[in-house]
Write a protein that binds this DNA or RNA. Structure first.
Lengths: 146, 146
DNA sequence: ATTCGTGCAAATAGTTTGCAGCAGA
DNA sequence: TCTGCTGCAAACTATTTGCACGAAT
């Protein structure tokens, strides 16, 4: 999806929740779209010092609620954020560096991914869980840290 | 592995790190072994009120460092802990309830697991990451919460 | 006008740490 | 008797929130 389309979709989702697509919210989406890989709060604030910390936390929470961004929990100090998969059209997983906390994206082949979906659905059924999504992370050290 | 053996292995790993296998550390391991599924700190403290909060945090950190327990990060308020896989001999994944924060275990068939290992190793190689382990979580709602 | 967003400063809460006394080898 | 462990209370830090002002519709 084009960046312009992403903005349009997010705007309509916000509107549906009686929220406005303000300049700082748009800025957050732009930063995440440019960066590609997930970003942590300090990175976002550093990338645009006009962003206020508390508003950024609030805006990311709003954007997460309307399904525009995804919050990634790692064992690092800060959570990371990225654009939602259905906006980028790019189902993927994460490589988490235990040393510097950086999070990178990677993908599996569609065939493997489809099989994974299938066996996970079966496991969820057996455990009587209603599954929202799955999360597959590789935990280790990035090329800079190893 | 039997519980007695687990204690023996943990004791030797602690010794190798110049640490002692004290009563409260042993108690934590017992509680986790009995419970099976991952436990959060308040559950551990409630299960044995003689445990002090700060010492429990410290002891779990020590046990994690010597590879006796694993800390599981969820988006819930508290982290969860369980015995390390190589002690229970039970490779598995997690079902995380977004509503109550409960974490349950599930497994994939050895065949699927082996294939997953293979494609993940390939992905890590491509990204120049040194992989420690993988983490596969299903995020949704447990039977009690849905 | 009314509702929502912003930014500051203060609060919250899980986790960590300093310290003085206790215990194991 | 030296080194590590404990428990209390205080500190730390990512994140959240109260509030008064500004902006959008």
């Amino acid at each position: 999806m084009e960046v312009a389309d992403i903005h349009a979709v997010i705007e309509s989702r916000l509107r549906a929740a009686d929220q406005r697509y303000t300049a700082s919210r748009r800025r957050l989406v732009e930063l995440l779209a440019e960066h590609g890989d997930p970003m942590r709060l300090p990175e976002l604030l550093a990338a645009d010092p006009s962003l206020a910390q508390s508003s950024t936390y609030r805006n990311l929470a709003v954007l997460e609620q309307v399904g525009a961004v995804t919050r990634i929990i790692t064992r690092g100090d800060h959570a990371s954020y990225e654009l939602a998969e259905d906006l980028t059209g790019n189902h993927h997983h994460h490589l988490v560096c235990t040393s510097c906390g950086e999070v990178a994206d990677f993908s599996l082949s569609p065939a493997v991914e489809a099989e994974l979906e299938r066996v996970l659905a079966a496991a969820a059924r057996k455990a009587h869980y209603d599954i929202d999504h799955h999360r597959l992370d590789l935990v280790g050290r990035c090329s800079a840290c190893r």
